[in-house]
Amino acid sequence: MAKITKSPWLLHYDGSSCNGCDIEVLACLTPVYDVERFGIINTGNPKHADIFLVTGGINEKNKAVVKQLYDQMPEPKVVVAVGICACNGGVFKDAYNIIGGVDKAIPVDVYVPGCAARPEAIIDGVVKALGVLDEKQKAFKEAKKKKGAEK
């Protein structure tokens, strides 16, 4: 990623995590780590969001909520799985109702391991997500142009 082409807004949702990664996600937004310097803010509204940060291994009840939030986000969108539980279920992998990772529910673009994932790692993941977002945006525009030409 050479430069940031837009101010990406992010949506954070706790997909059955232990709250450890969630407070680290919030810590990213506060003065010491301050992702706002990249123009990133945490929005509570999925319809405004470009990047979806999900923590935790997702349980059966939460699966539908995560899917719904993902569907409500406009294209192009990027999903970042934060923490080892979000990557593969982590310490709760053997629990009876954990589906074992965010990618079992929705497509994931960037994986950030760690227990709890450190703010530096989360920011790195978000910056990687920005690169993916740029590519998706390009592909999205081309597809649109192609569609226009066909008409």
């Binding site: 706790d14 349980n59 009840k61 939460n62 109702n97």
Partner: peptide, 15 residues
């Protein structure tokens, strides 16, 4: 509630 239930109390039988 139940959105983050992970079954820790059951997990003790496996860990």
């Amino acid at each position: 509630i139940g959105f983050i239930h992970r079954g820790l109390e059951k997990l003790v039988e496996k860990r």
